[in-house]
Design a protein around this nucleic acid. Structure first.
Lengths: 143, 143
DNA sequence: ATAAGTGCAAAGAATTTGCAGTTAC
DNA sequence: GTAACTGCAAATTCTTTGCACTTAT
């Protein structure tokens, strides 16, 4: 497993030491691209590589990676933070959460454009957005 | 201060004892219609009426009121739950959070309809949604 | 060499729970 | 009268922090 070049460059730019721990966390996030992991889940996976890894380091790493936007940090109604690899496509924060199986799906972007344009006309200066749709996914809906 | 008739009826239907504590919490939520309060904030306000009120009771009350949809419970990226009086207009869960002053604004509903119709065609069965837009509100944007 | 990062354990913050006493119906 | 509710304090869960030790550059 290797770190993607783009990510490496962004780390270097941020004067970010590439420790074993951080490499392990990043590799987990890369392997789980598209998934939304809690710190605990990242810890469990990353310990396959770095068994003595501590949860505090995971939190600090995730926090730091979110700060430079390598990761995207969000929270769902369950009440804990989840992190996903950010595919720098600016805002891809449209999620569908299956109420039955808890899987999280991504929604295509661009669907909120007209809404945002309206708000900007009203004087709001939009920085980010999140749309969370709670639903049964097609599979769970069938059952 | 009085409890609104509609709310009272919904409580009775849910076989819900109207204690002093619950009345105080409900009155706070009514007075702060349109605001999104944390349990702590509700506690502070409600203690004006019931000084010995405990935080556990507040949490239990808010939880119970959310279960019968008298309140709507949500979480923002700050990581704690907030509650607002639910104006049974089904989904009114479109929020704008001002990054500067932290005020929360409501967005009109109906703007997500086309998106949801699309997803339903794909087999998703939508139960609820939340849109959170992080922005500078018109006032803060001017500064 | 040294500034930054780590692991551990302890502290914090938000929320939940157990239980003996209280209250609305 | 009694089942439901309350307040308190203790327990849980998630996250952050302090500090002595370690490591990448």
């Amino acid at each position: 497993m290797m770190l993607e070049q783009g990510i490496k460059e962004r780390l270097e730019k941020a004067e970010y030491k590439l420790t074993q721990q951080r490499k392990a966390v990043l590799e987990v996030m890369q392997n789980k691209r598209g998934e939304h992991l809690t710190a605990e889940e990242v810890l469990y996976e990353a310990r396959q590589k770095v068994p003595h890894l501590g949860i505090a380091t995971v939190y600090r790493t995730l926090e730091r990676l979110a700060a430079i936007e390598v990761l995207y940090k969000t929270i769902f109604d369950e009440g804990k933070y989840r992190y996903e690899l950010s595919d720098q496509a600016e805002h891809q924060h449209l999620h569908i959460l299956c109420i039955a199986c808890s899987r999280i799906f991504e929604v295509e972007e661009g669907l909120l454009d007209s809404l945002e344009k309206h708000l900007e006309k009203d004087g709001f200066e939009i920085v980010n957005h999140q749309l969370k749709i709670y639903a049964y996914c097609p599979e769970c809906s069938r059952k």
